[in-house]
Write a protein that binds this DNA or RNA. Structure first.
Length: 607
RNA sequence: GCCGACGUAGCUCAGUGGUAGAGCAGCGGUUUCGUAAACCGCUGGCCGGGAGUUCGAAUCUCCCCGUCGGCUCCA
């Protein structure tokens, strides 16, 4: 959900005339009015709904007369009209009207959305403000810029269908999005940022770097990793595995399908049915489901025998592949797939151990993410979703309190997400900012009293009696595919050396010089012996320049070019090109080169 | 799921009712070149799938699949 500074016109109240030093919000809100003015001129009979400023821009919702719809081509036309209106420097004129009079006005203008807004105002509101811009009049609490001439650095970006009042049972309106800034320079900079985001798009880089694909025959939201992507993924998993072993996790494996009983008991079929693929029917009418979550399987492992308090905390880890039915319109590359693999673990512990586990878990999580090159975090605490939750208020309070406790004192910003928890418990999400400042939800840590209860889990406590364990669900990458996509975008495809599929491209200047060929082969062998991943570009018929270019396009971190001159000089020095630093070159000795690269890998340097 | 746009060679795209095209990639040859593209030639397509309209469909209509931008959802 993008953070929208919603101009809830329902609060239309006292007018604030014009703003001498308008903020970006004011400017953008004024741009929204200007757009609506242009639209109502160009499309007589258009009904306008609301038009707030949002992050980086603004929008306005419309219903066009008849079955008419905006097309992308209309954006240019509307934009032109806006420029015309802008040049006329039309003042934004405020007025205050008695509520009934305003209602009659919009009734007369045949603007049903505005009438509806007035009707939804609190009973105590008896006066509302309106703004006029040329012939356009809008219910609005302001403030606005002085005149439309201030709104000149803008661009309309896209058109979208939206539900009236955001409720999918309502009719769909058309929303036009735009961006607006005080100066053309700022506008250009913003458009540049959009371009930069497009350049980093993991779907595009996934194809260019031959990392993965979504074959149409496979079905929407289902991915295949190619050798390059597969290697990166394996390296990501290997390091995660190593760290989990060190942190006291034990590894388990579970199947991809299960009888419905399991998810009946867990409650997923009641609470999560929309996300579950339809069942497979067996001959005897037995129903099997693809697993949307791993937790019930791990619970069965816990429950497979009597457990002692001495075994706790029991941390069961699995790269568990799950399948979730995502609505067709929401599938999006690797970040929203229908089949994906979680780095999923469930920690079974006593109530007394819970707090300590959460604290060390959060440390573990942030440390691991930092090793993958992310360093700018904030935390989000999601609380009980009213009406969609199981368990008592007391349990929810305890679990929420424990999470809050663990999250505080981390030196990280903690944002509240009311009602955002799962049906079985509250959660902390770790959010990270990437290289161009976008935020991604990464890790999730959830406290759960419910599943242990539903599955009747218990352990023998020190007194010889039985107690019920607490479960902590946690996925640090979230989903490997998603985390992979985030890294692709964060690094713009130029992975740090320890994750780069090819770490050093070795390029012969001549293919037919035995001494050059031998020198390259020798260097490649020495690098492999040092557990580095060199690649020799000996494609016949390609010139050295073309090979350098290919290595650059493939975002290979380092390039070594060896030719006759090097061999003849015979001083052991090589020409090393650093692709991540604009192709900067330097001379290095072979031993130094290998030492330098292995150190960079060992330290997992982010670039 | 909903609104809109789109789907032509491995990739990026041109082609709007009359014989399917370009660049790159791939393959074959020539070239052996010092840090971002040598040159010549060749191959490559059920124009996403199906049904319809038409003498004739990549092109028009409908259904399905898939992609993109949003909405809703992200439990």
């Amino acid at each position: 959900m993008p953070s929208e500074v919603v101009d809830d016109a329902a609060e239309a109240g006292l007018p604030i005339a014009t703003s001498d030093a308008p903020t970006l919000d004011v400017l953008r809100h004024s741009a929204a009015h200007l757009m609506a003015a242009a639209v109502t001129e160009l499309f007589p009979g258009a009904k306008y709904d609301v038009g707030p400023s949002i992050e980086d821009g603004f929008f306005y919702n419309f219903r066009l007369p008849g079955d008419a719809h905006f097309t992308e081509d209309d954006l240019g036309v509307i934009e032109e009209r806006m420029r015309l209106l802008s040049k006329r420097a039309l003042p934004y004129l405020p007025d205050v009207l008695p509520r009934a009079e305003a209602r009659a006005l919009f009734e007369q203008l045949d603007q049903p959305f505005k009438v509806a807004i007035i009707d939804r105002l609190d009973a105590g509101v008896d006066r509302v403000s309106v703004y006029r811009t040329g012939d356009f009049i809008d219910l609005c609490r302001g403030p606005h810029v002085a005149d439309s001439g201030v709104v000149h650095a803008f661009k309309l970006l896209r058109v979208a269908g939206v539900y009236w009042l955001g409720d999918e049972r309502n009719e769909q309106l058309q929303r036009v999005y735009g961006t607006a800034w005080f100066s053309d320079e700022e506008l250009d900079a913003y458009l540049h940022r959009l371009e930069e985001a497009r350049r980093r798009d993991h779907r595009r880089l996934g194809q260019e770097l031959d990392l993965f694909s979504f074959p149409e025959e496979l079905g929407s939201g289902l991915v295949v990793f190619h050798p390059n992507g597969g290697l990166i993924r394996t390296l990501m998993e290997d390091y995660s595995r190593e760290r989990h072993i060190a942190a006291g996790y034990e590894f388990v494996n579970t199947p991809h399908i299960t009888k419905e009983d399991l998810f009946q008991i867990s409650g997923h079929l009641d609470w999560f049915s929309e996300g579950v693929f339809p069942p497979l029917e067996l001959d005897e009418g037995q129903r099997y489901y693809l697993k949307p979550m791993n937790c019930p399987m791990h619970i069965l492992i816990f429950r497979s025998r009597m457990r002692s308090y001495r075994e706790l905390p029991l941390r069961l880890f699995e790269f568990g592949t799950v399948y979730r039915y995502e609505k067709s319109g929401v599938v999006h590359g690797l970040t929203r797939a229908r089949g994906f693999t979680q780095d999923d673990a469930h920690i079974f512990c006593s109530r007394e151990q819970m707090q300590g586990e959460l604290v060390s878990l959060l440390d573990f999580t942030l440390g691991l993410l930092r090793d993958y090159g992310l360093s700018d975090f904030y935390l989000e605490l999601s609380t009980k979703p009213e009406g969609k939750a199981v368990g008592t208020d007391k349990e929810w309070e305890e679990a929420t309190g424990a999470l809050r406790e663990a999250a505080s004192g981390r030196g990280l910003e903690l944002v509240l997400d009311p009602g955002g928890g799962t049906f079985y418990g509250p959660k902390i999400s770790v959010q990270a900012r990437d290289a161009i400042g976008r935020t991604w939800q990464i890790s999730t840590i959830q406290v759960d009293f419910q599943l242990p209860h539903r599955f009747g889990l218990e352990f023998v406590d020190p007194s010889g009696g039985t107690s019920r364990p607490i479960m902590i669900h946690r996925a640090l990458f979230g989903s490997i595919e998603r985390f992979f996509a985030i890294l692709v975008e964060h690094y713009a495809g130029a992975f740090p050396l320890w994750l780069a599929p090819v770490q050093c491209e070795l390029i012969p200047v001549q293919d037919d010089e035995p001494a050059v060929v031998a020198s390259i082969a020798d260097l490649a062998a020495r690098m492999r012996a040092a557990r580095l991943r060199p690649h020799v570009d000996d494609r016949p018929g390609e010139r050295m320049q073309a090979r350098v270019r290919t290595a650059e396009l493939h975002k290979v971190p380092y390039v070594v070019v060896i030719g006759k001159r090097d061999v003849e000089r015979n001083d052991g020095m090589l020409s090393l090109r650093d692709n991540r630093r604009g192709g900067a070159q330097q001379q290095v000795a072979v031993d130094d080169l290998i030492e330098r690269l292995t150190a960079e890998v060992r330290e997992r340097r982010p670039e």
